[in-house]
Design a binder for these strands. Structure first.
Lengths: 206, 206
DNA sequence: CTGTGTGAAGGCTTTCACAGCC
DNA sequence: GGCTGTGAAAGCCTTCACACAG
């Protein structure tokens, strides 16, 4: 694997390109130009080309990119070649909705288990995932090789739950709690903050 | 209102600062240093100070910032002084969860109505919002002054629904569909793509 | 002639270093 | 002494311009 440093923003866009390629594939297209792919991903053609050069050359001049080949290389770079197990912590409204959301499985993520303060059999059946009590979190993480967590607990317990998860070996957190988590350097956090996104939009329509 | 151009990223961070200030206020703190506020918002102190200089001076040297005063100025800049009505389109799993999510109302956004292909009375009661059929979308937008929309429909209809909303006057869209929407310049889109966030995390733990 | 690959230029953001004020 | 405000420097990312391959 190439040890080249790929800029954060480029990595993010690689996922967009991958998505667009999947759609192209579904439509029976097997060659795309940087212009077409860039439009589908919402970026400029030069940027797409520059992004791709970070890890090699794939295009055929005068023609474009081979869809299958480029997607394969992208999954490889992104580390999504294999199924990645994930846990979800906090099965409230948002957490439950995410468990039912088909997008995760579709993109290669399997929710190994969900955790909640008050797990119920019925809930578990409804959601199609085992829902364990919060007290089993550490034990579960130690017993299974899960590195990623989706955090959908209330803000006031988010940091505490995070500390526990990190102690038990979690490396990456997708955080929906509206708070900035303090974590050590080896742990990655991506924040999704719905209220902030709305607030941000409201600024631009003033 | 100052017509200064504030960088996109700064605007985004202003929301983070605002959040942190609210927490400080709740804890009875009325003066914070840039260092403390920056930590709470997950940024560096110099960046916070630089961000604030885009629209004035607020701090007292040797002391810090007045919490109440700074929050007031931030709501003003962000345009969240008044309640901002929003519609939600697509009341599936994710859409329903968002309607029940207390974070929106808390931050000053009111969901004026939700739209779905198959609205039901019971659903509406459950969600505490009126759920109208998709066919009423245009009519509703024309009759009410709503500029912002949360889009939680399946990807394959997202662009079409978007076109309709824009025709009817929508100016800003918070898009959860995993697709890049093509919109005219005067319309702002913020994308929230859960699968991509996970994919992104998985890259960093390779 | 079409469309990729890429050094160089340009633009935007962050960080530094320190002057200024309480 | 402590902490803000800010020009200047550094770093990062995007865009341009054009060489080059099919």
């Amino acid at each position: 694997m190439s040890k080249l440093i790929i800029p954060r923003k480029t990595v993010y866009r690689l996922s967009l390109y991958y998505r667009a390629l999947q759609r192209a594939k579904a439509n029976g297209i097997d060659t795309v130009s940087s212009a077409a792919l860039a439009t589908a991903a919402g970026v400029k053609p030069t940027q797409l080309r520059k992004d791709l050069t970070y890890f090699g050359q794939f295009g055929t001049r005068g023609l474009g990119y081979n869809v299958a080949q480029l997607s394969a290389r992208l999954t490889d770079v992104l580390g999504t070649t294999r199924l990645q197990p994930v846990i979800l912590v906090g099965a409230g409204n948002l957490g439950s909705a995410l468990l039912k959301y088909p997008g995760f499985a579709k993109e290669g993520f399997e929710v190994a288990a969900a955790f909640d303060l008050e797990p119920s059999r019925q809930r578990a059946k409804e959601l199609g995932v085992r829902v364990l009590p919060m007290t089993k979190l550490t034990e579960f993480l130690r017993g299974n090789q899960v590195k990623m967590a989706i955090l959908t607990v209330p803000a006031h317990v988010a940091q505490e739950v995070t500390n526990n998860m990190i102690d038990a070996g979690i490396m990456a957190i997708l955080n929906f709690a509206p708070i900035i988590l303090q974590v050590p350097d080896h742990v990655v956090v991506n924040n999704v903050d719905l209220a902030i996104e709305l607030e941000n939009l409201s600024y631009f329509i003033q």
